[in-house]
Nucleic acid binder design. Sequence first.
DNA 1: GCCTGAAGGCTAATATCAATAGCCTGAAGC
DNA 2: GCTTCAGGCTATTGATATTAGCCTTCAGGC
Lengths: 196, 196
Amino acid sequence: MPRAGLTEIRVVEEGERIADEVGLSSLTLAALAQRLGVRQPSLYKHVAGTDGLRRSIAIRAKIELAAVLRRATVGRARRDAIGSMARAYRAWAKQHPGRYAAAQRAPVPGDADDEFASAEAVQVAFDVMAGYNLRDDDAVDAIRGLRAALHGFVTLESDGGFGLPVDIDRSFERLVAGLATAFEAWSDDPAVSAQI
Amino acid sequence: MPRAGLTEIRVVEEGERIADEVGLSSLTLAALAQRLGVRQPSLYKHVAGTDGLRRSIAIRAKIELAAVLRRATVGRARRDAIGSMARAYRAWAKQHPGRYAAAQRAPVPGDADDEFASAEAVQVAFDVMAGYNLRDDDAVDAIRGLRAALHGFVTLESDGGFGLPVDIDRSFERLVAGLATAFEAWSDDPAVSAQI
DNA sequence: GCCTGAAGGCTAATATCAATAGCCTGAAGC
DNA sequence: GCTTCAGGCTATTGATATTAGCCTTCAGGC
């Protein structure tokens, strides 16, 4: 009998596929082992059980999402950057619902890798807010608001929470535009305020 | 041996308590049966398994939350109503994290009771939006935005997603105020726009 | 006060999943 | 070729959900 030739990365990637296809809650070690052609206990040679698997997926998702957001904002500023980032966020979450759900878990305090990955995405938002001349507490408020709105929207959308047959893209664009306008008003920099 | 004297309502209420105390994901029939002093299978005489229990909790939570929001908006209008509703929403979610989480499940299509309960909360928001002279698609956009922002904020807050030690109440107030301003701008009613 | 029947408990059994212990062997390095 | 050990495996335990089917309490009719 030849070996299956698993590695941690192959196990985690297959787990990501399952999570995206059937939902994070249906990602079981049993299903994962079956797809990889091995028995459940064999997976423990590569990942630290269910928790370890989900943690790995979460960390990778956070880093990938941060990179996507970063790419969406290069060469853009202010509402242009916010809009582009918001659309990229929503698109990625839609394309990878399982990974996105996994990424929502806050890092266990002291888990350096997870904390680093979480900070990555926040950093992108901070950089964008600097373009509004928002700093410190003002930037924190803006990021929290933006993140809450994006996360809430994406979550409700993917859970089918928007029942009515009214254009969802339009609702999203208006929400983002409204927030961008609000952030402008929070800045006391005349160069930014003048753009309203 | 005297009977335990369970009823559906008593089972569901104890389930709500467990969910709020230790989290919805830790609400198991085993734990529930133990707290009620019976064996697991006995619960099936009163609720339709785990799914049925969660569904009952969800429906009751939606109705209660709708009532809370309704109370928060009577005698208020526009940004006053939005602010009051938003604060009531956040406060209720914080007080009842398990029930709130249960309420996020979208109703199974065709489940009349659940659909009714879901519509209740949306109706409150619709009524408030009418005060902005927002109707139809504009109202839908506004409700989606508000709901997304509130849900996202509350979820991130309860999951400990806001790491930084910056005043969370202030972030919330600014987000809500920003949205209220945006909604005013969406209205073409001069009487509303003049208030900006 | 009995009889009856169903409601509301129970035990027992099955299935799924996670997790641990410990065996066995393929394959790489010497 | 030998050794070693990483990477598979089987077997087992424990948590949970669920179903089947039994048995007794208790209420209502006679």
